[in-house]
Design a protein around this nucleic acid. Structure first.
Lengths: 334, 334
DNA sequence: GCTTGACATGCAACCGGTTGCATTAAATAG
DNA sequence: CTATTTAATGCAACCGGTTGCATGTCAAGC
């Protein structure tokens, strides 16, 4: 095993190049201050020794770490990975490293993570944060912070407006003749959930449909299955789920129970994370998480450059993607 | 906006508590060295001022950053998120922060990321690394490093042995009467791909089946669609895909072309990332990525404790999950 | 030929902690 | 009651860079 952990320091390079460490430091940060020859000499010595500036030491004296933190409720929820990837790529373009945190839908955990990261990051992106407004405002006061899918006035935020798509979904179901539908909700603290729920209610009221709301905490396939009997028990003929995973779980349970989709019952998902991979292919609301990740990172980078914090509210709207899980109400269960 | 960035330092706490900074430092790191009363005094002062130790400064003097880096080829590939989540949770238990890197299946990018992270992490986990053995060995010499799904002797590694499951898949197809099958490959540098390919070949030889191998670089739904015509052109009656995503793409394209699965053609995936969500539900090889993530992190934590590096080769084996995309060859296309 | 700048480099303090050793006070031993 | 431990705390160097200011050099300006 080769020797480990003894990277050369600025002092060794300085000695090798016959200059002081100030010059070495400048050669790497502001070479225009030095004569070309000195810079050349220093680079040669650095190369020779395999010198790489120590990130930590630099961060300590400059206060700039070149790191940001991205916190999501659940990495394994397919909504997030594309967003994470987009954010990551964007950070990379500015030579930033990304800490990833998984809050497990838990405000305590989220707070703990922010504390752990704080002090080694220049800024935060909180996705679908489960923290209270007050907590978010407090953290935003300590470090640049951008929200995704959380609407706190004064804090820069990127919102995927699923309300537009959800309203279209309700209209679509109304057109198909459905009169009563269930909204199968998501996590309590979720802004997206509130937004979707109220969009369903609003659209339904306008169109004269009846709505029943059923809640749950951890959006996932399994929950979709468990909740299905209560959904059917309402006597509704269609359901709009908080997300595709929940919808998928419902689809599986409906199939199990011999309820045909869309003939007997219509299902609409949200976020289009499964594409056309379910059977029947899921009617759902489109998702713009990649753009959201990118936009949030740009916003954050912007804040890090000119530390003026503008009250940005960047909204991405969505639309209904009609596939095969919605059909006429005539034939549906009554 | 509240004042930003002026966190109290150890000196201010020291002044407030009427002690020196050494004592404050010790109160947080080795309180047993101090009298109970002093510790109490210091904690009170720290609490009062809202003091939090500066991670960066601490890392600089101790060399321990409390960070690790996890690098994957593609965050958005559904194989990885559960693994990431498991690794994350495990890191969390030891109060470690996780940098996430996305190499885009690109060795250059992977190398760049390792460089960027190096110096602020104590160790690396490389998942399905696309680097050369030599590069991996070099990096492993500089910092503790654990591999997942990459088999380099001398480097601690966790391997998901899909060979067992793949062999079962071939046997299953043989039993169904198939005589010729296609292996639809994955990325060139991928250990898993090599392993699966040779497992297919070996099992096929043993059972007297004919195998055609078709390759691709970026495993994904789209590729699965694109490759399907060439797969059909071989005249084979079944295919085993490098991963579920590729298989899913094939399923979509087969449906499009009116080829019935499993009546006309059988498809087997690998990694079971989609569960039963495809239609028909995909026959695939089980996946143990959660355990792999957990195991890799435990290994790494172990290496960080007692820096002895043992040559660990931890193998998790897999099995075939039979669902609905495989059927008898009799009725298949000829 | 002496002053004035501009430019290149060095000096030393600083970022915010940690830690080996020295110092002091209190406790125990002889 | 003095000698010796032992426990608690302080001192100062160190981790590896960055940066404001001082210094020195050389060329142009008058």
């Amino acid at each position: 095993m080769p020797p480990r952990q003894n990277r050369p320091t600025i002092n060794q390079v300085a000695a090798a190049a016959g200059v002081t460490k100030s010059s070495v430091s400048r050669a790497f940060t502001r070479p225009e201050m030095l004569s070309e020859e000195t810079v050349r000499k220093i680079f040669a010595a650095a190369e020779e020794l395999g010198y790489v500036p120590n990130h930590t030491a630099r961060a300590l004296s400059t206060g700039r770490h070149g790191n940001i933190a991205l916190i999501v409720p659940d990495v394994a929820n397919p909504f997030f990975p594309p967003l994470i990837r987009a954010a990551q790529a964007e950070a990379d373009r500015s030579d930033y490293c990304v800490f990833l945190g998984n809050s497990d839908e838990n405000p305590k955990q989220e707070d703990k993570l922010i504390g752990r990261f704080g002090g080694q990051v220049e800024g935060f992106v909180l996705v679908s944060s489960r923290l209270s407004d007050a907590q978010i405002i407090e953290h935003a006061g300590r470090a640049p912070l951008v929200l995704i899918n959380r609407d706190v006035p004064g804090i820069p935020r990127v919102l995927i407006d699923s309300a537009t798509g959800v309203a279209q979904a309700v209209a679509h179901l109304a057109e198909l003749g459905h009169r009563k539908l269930v909204y199968v909700g998501g996590p309590h603290g979720s802004w997206s959930n509130k937004q979707r729920r109220s969009a369903v209610r609003r659209a339904a009221r306008k169109l004269g449909l009846e709505v029943v709301v059923i809640s749950n905490e951890f959006p996932a396939f399994e929950f979709g299955r468990k909740v299905t009997p209560s959904v059917l028990a309402t006597g509704a003929t269609a359901a709009i789920a908080f997300d595709d995973l929940t919808a998928q779980g419902m689809l599986a349970e409906l199939a199990e129970q011999g309820v045909a989709v869309p003939d007997d019952f219509s299902v609409v998902g949200c976020d289009d994370v499964l594409g056309a991979a379910t059977f029947p292919a899921l009617t759902t609301v489109s998702n713009r998480s990649v753009e959201a990740g990118r936009a949030a990172l740009n916003l954050l980078m912007d804040m890090l450059q000119n530390q003026a914090i503008r009250d940005v509210r960047y909204v991405l709207d969505t639309s209904l993607v009609i596939r095969k899980t919605t059909g006429p109400a005539e034939s549906a269960l009554q």
